[in-house]
């Protein structure tokens, strides 16, 4: 619990930094219909089975992607969930989930950026777009 608070606290700070630096770029990206269309395609093929068409997840099993601290939070941390998966069963905004999130490192940088941009501008979310360069950086950075 303590750990989580630190993590969430940390990610809020980080995302605030990212936001102030990249907000203008992100805005133009977020309105690109091509990115959203491709993001939706990736989402439908690789994410929908678990997180559902409405991003609402499945009670106790798969978390929602609606305004969670991960979805709205630090970009690198979010990208790493997609690349490396997630299976520690940590609390996500006060709930735990029994299923696992398999790694999706097989997606291209473009696909990861697009699907996350789609998620961050769908299901009631409003967060800056994820850029290909950020995915590239997260992929090469240490875990």
């Amino acid at each position: 619990m303590v750990l989580l608070t630190i993590m969430v606290g940390g990610s809020t700070q980080l995302s605030a930094q990212t936001k102030s630096k990249q907000a203008p770029v992100a805005k133009t990206k977020a309105v690109s219909a091509a990115v959203l269309a491709n993001g939706k395609k990736v989402y439908t093929k690789y994410c929908l089975a678990c997180h559902m068409a409405d991003g609402g997840g499945v009670q106790n099993m798969n978390p929602p992607l609606i305004k969670t601290s991960y979805v709205l939070g630090n970009a690198t941390k979010l990208i790493k969930v997609i690349l490396n998966g997630m299976s520690e069963g940590v609390e996500i905004d006060g709930e735990t989930y029994t299923n696992i999130m398999p790694p999706h490192g097989f997606l291209t940088d473009q696909e990861v950026a697009d699907v996350l941009t789609y998620v961050r501008s769908s299901f009631g979310n409003k967060a800056p777009a994820i850029k290909v360069a950020e995915v590239k950086a997260a992929r090469t950075a240490k875990k």
Binding site: Y46, G85, S87, N99, I100, P102, P103, H104, F106
Partner: peptide
């Protein structure tokens, strides 16, 4: 090998 992974 990778639970619920693609073509695992």
């Amino acid at each position: 090998e990778q639970d619920r992974g693609l073509r695992s």
